[in-house]
Design a protein around this nucleic acid. Structure first.
Lengths: 342, 342
DNA sequence: GCTGACTCTTGCATCGTTGCAGAGGTGTAT
DNA sequence: ATACACCTCTGCAACGATGCAAGAGTCAGC
């Protein structure tokens, strides 16, 4: 099972271990004749370098870890894809892990027996863990945070401008003449910082338009999955004065909300217009297709990887909040032709 | 940056390196007094074991790799989630990588400088690579294949019964009285073995029902993405005698097809019934929700991980084709109430 | 008091690789 | 002929951990 080592190859080719290593890595000058002999031995024995040993010697692994709450949430899957691509461009591979939104599991990551030491760096999309906790764990591995806003400057952190993104979405709905715009996805508790920023943007849009917010139209949800979007929408439809538009804090909520609307016989967008956030591919193919705020995922991934590699290679950059771009993508759920309607 | 090693802690606590190691691992008997002293030193210095060194010594990493064509294809994302969960139950972590359906990248994996040696085992969902190629690479790492059918017994291989799954889907449509059942997703070339099996099942259903297959209703696609499902559906709708039902070889094709149908003003399922395969979560929330054949993903993942760990731990099991279960999940796209219709 | 058994602790070798410094040999300039 | 530079090649030590076997110390038993 165990393959041949440098020593085995060296014995066979009748040279020193060191020379074999040199041939493998193309390091020091080796005479053509000897090189050929060694190469032959390498080939015959089908030598593969033991990367663990190499890593130990070199003090780096060429691996970074990407930790997300849930890998089968499309946004994270799409982000993971971009991160893998960005890392590969630098010769790094990515190990993806998920925490299931379980705070314990996030903490495990930083604990004494964590496998984090196996990686040159960590990209973490935190869900419940706080900055203080993160800092107090005195981690040895460089960390770059994704997505969550943590209110202090201890870590590098990449995210879109959540306030502006939510404002853009809401303003789009208001600009269509909608006047009862609901919001689905607020999380008015300590770990819901991103959601809260989106609520701020939602309010700002109203304020700027000189409109009041009807507090009953802001529906909090415990997570960002389709089911809760549907439930929140059902709740809104049951109000005495239901909304004529809804901004959902992510696309999954929006897809769930659309499902509930269709089920209830409401027409999108005529009766209720819907906007999401994330621009997952699914929204392009839903019925109707989903208007959304699109974060530039490739940019997020590239920036995150670049920043992390910078830390790894010792560029002592100051921790910084890095804001990446986003744009509104208008589709049928707000201005669409009504499919299957006159 | 570099943390303290056993040596540093040993110096501080005035004991041997070996004793510190014993305390860390709880191995040999250590007197309470000494243990306390060492533990104190460990805590003060915030010692973290260097896993790379440990791995080198022990010859295993506790990591397996999962290689899929595309991580942002929901089926693979959902599968990855299950694999991560199954592996964690055995104390293993999973590194996920994607090949982008690029044969070169699949081959890289097995090449001389592959990082595969860093893993105790490999779960591979091959797209273009053949069994012969895989075998010829004389790999050192245990491999278990997922999903693709490779016609020989050289490797462990986990998959559903693709013929039966396709037959079940098609029979469901025929049992509804549909008589022009189309198939979207055939891949009549060497790397499309899974697709071809599904075509076999599609034909079997017709044969068993005593019906002929209209070859024009079998539409091949280059991949299994939404867009090609939509295009294939448009093509089918343009036929002189369009289908009254369609079996798509995966859910993404089905969702694309449904999108095209809705766009064209056709009603699902009244005009055209649609069945997919994979049971991705998206299909539960689409409009209409999608009837599909559901592979038991958790079972696939568990079986794959168990088999791989068996190989790793040296149980010299014979390579085997392992068939996991599937079931038909009926939703609105075949027997649904028509949403938004009288 | 000596032996043996037992408990606790330690040093050495090792995993497979690479960094470093130098050995050995040849060729060139003086 | 001597010195020097140069090109190849090699041995040793080290990365940080663990397996092994033995060293040191304590105690009981006869």
């Amino acid at each position: 099972m165990a393959g041949p080592t440098l020593r085995d190859v060296a014995r066979r080719a009748n040279v020193s271990i060191r020379t074999v290593s040199n041939v493998v890595n193309g390091y020091a000058p080796v005479s053509a004749e000897l090189r050929a002999r060694v190469q032959a031995a390498l080939d015959e024995m089908d030598y593969r370098p033991n990367l663990i040993a190499r890593n130990l010697k070199q003090g780096r692994t060429g691996m970074i870890a990407l930790v997300v709450p849930e890998l089968d949430v499309p946004y994270f899957a799409e982000l993971a894809r971009e991160v893998i691509t960005a890392a590969r461009a630098h010769g790094y591979v990515v190990m993806v892990d998920q925490t299931d939104g379980d705070g314990e599991r996030e903490r495990e990551l930083l604990g004494r027996d964590s496998r984090a030491t196996m990686f040159d760096g960590l990209l973490l999309s935190p869900l419940t863990i706080s900055a203080e906790e993160l800092r107090s764990r005195g981690n040895r591995v460089p960390i770059v945070l994704l997505g969550e806003h943590l209110f202090n400057g201890s870590f590098h952190h990449i995210a879109i401008d959540n306030v502006a993104a939510a404002r853009d979405a809401t303003e789009h709905l208001l600009s269509l003449g909608r006047r009862r715009v609901a919001a689905i996805g607020d999380q008015p508790y300590s770990t819901g910082q991103t959601a809260q920023l989106r609520t701020v943007g939602y309010r700002q849009a109203h304020t700027r338009a000189g409109l009041d917010v009807d507090e009953r139209l802001i529906v909090p949800t415990a997570n960002f999955h389709r089911r809760l979007g549907a439930e929140a929408m059902q709740h809104l439809l049951a109000l005495p004065e239901p909304p004529d538009a809804v901004f959902c804090y992510n696309d999954l909520l929006a897809l769930g909300a659309m499902r509930a609307l269709t089920r209830a016989g409401r027409h999108i967008p005529d009766d209720v217009a819907v906007v999401g956030l994330d621009d997952i591919e699914e929204g392009q193919y839903s019925t109707p297709s989903l208007t959304t705020v699109a974060p530039h995922k490739a940019e997020i991934a590239r920036t995150a990887v670049d920043t992390l590699l910078g830390l790894i290679n010792g560029s002592a950059v100051q921790p910084a909040e890095i804001v990446t771009s986003h744009r509104l993508v208008v589709r049928e759920s707000t201005v669409g032709e009504a499919p299957g309607r006159p």
